[in-house]
């Protein structure tokens, strides 16, 4: 017994050390960025209208992308969790496609479907909506790259709900819609919420696809990039710190909310 405990403690030490290295790898660059920012520079950046509007734009477009596309993603996730159909694996593969293709390529792909010559572009034109260089385009680009996170999480969530609850609900006089909204959706909600947070976070931080569809108006990642290429590291760091801080605060709030729901 002692030998086993000894070996385990040695393994535990090695794993803790390796894990610690990894945590340092994540924390160090972010912490370094904060340490390299002066309070004067930070105050000036916060007062900068362009920075403030870019952060706000990133926030609301990513939220909008998450909310709008969740209306399509959650039903699809439910179908994928519950139904078997030909080429289901292909559909699952297609959903993961935005994760593996380079995001600049994703931007070009999105640009192809939202230009004025495309079907979607023409239809949008009719109602006076334009995608290129507009929040609508940003929302589409963000949704394209971040939707797999929501679909995958929601699908796993629905799959973890025993189908028997839904069947019982049906025999209890519930319509399929009532069974979905009162049984399946609440029971899968934790996973769906995780997916929503991941999708929102991924969309908010998106740079590659967004810059191709809409250089202006500038989202925070585009603004940070622009400051870096135009003025150098010194001017881009405060803007990055402001955006990262906003993201962190929101991320912590969402994590706390999720923890409360899970409890």
């Amino acid at each position: 017994m002692n030998t086993v405990a000894k070996n385990n403690s040695a393994l535990g030490l090695i794993f803790t050390f390796l894990g610690g290295l990894l945590l340092l790898f994540i924390i160090a660059p972010v912490a370094g960025m904060y340490l390299n920012t002066t309070s004067a520079g930070l105050t000036e950046t916060i007062g900068d209208d362009a920075v403030r509007s870019s952060v706000w734009l990133s926030l609301w477009t990513s939220m909008a992308a998450t909310m709008l596309f969740s209306l399509l993603a959650i039903p699809l996730a439910y179908i994928l969790a519950r139904k078997n159909f030909p080429l289901k694996n292909v559909v699952n593969g297609i959903i993961d496609l935005p994760i593996i293709i380079p995001h600049s390529a994703a931007g070009i792909a999105v640009l192809g479907i939202v230009t004025r010559n495309s079907l979607l572009g023409k239809a949008a034109d009719l109602v006076g909506l334009k995608f290129i260089g507009s929040p609508a385009g940003i929302i589409v680009a963000m949704a394209f790259v971040s939707i797999p996170f929501l679909i995958n999480a929601a699908r796993d969530g629905f799959a973890a709900v025993p189908e028997r609850y839904e069947k019982t609900a049906l025999t209890m006089g519930a319509s399929p819609a009532r069974a979905f909204f009162t049984i399946s959706l609440p029971l899968a909600w934790r996973s769906i919420l995780s997916g929503l947070i991941l999708m929102w976070g991924r969309g908010m931080s998106e740079f590659g696809a967004v810059i191709i569809v809409a250089y202006n108006p500038q989202t925070a990642p585009v603004l940070i990039f622009e400051r870096f290429t135009s003025y150098g590291l010194k001017y881009s760091v405060p803007a990055a710190v402001v955006f990262v801080t906003v993201c962190l605060v929101l991320f912590i709030i969402f994590r706390l909310v999720k923890k409360k729901i899970n409890a």
């Binding site: 025993p162 028997r164 609850y165 019982t168 209890m172």
Partner: peptide, 11 residues
Amino acid sequence: SIVYQDSVLFP
């Protein structure tokens, strides 16, 4: 009305 062996009540 069906009552299953497990997954009986809505949790």
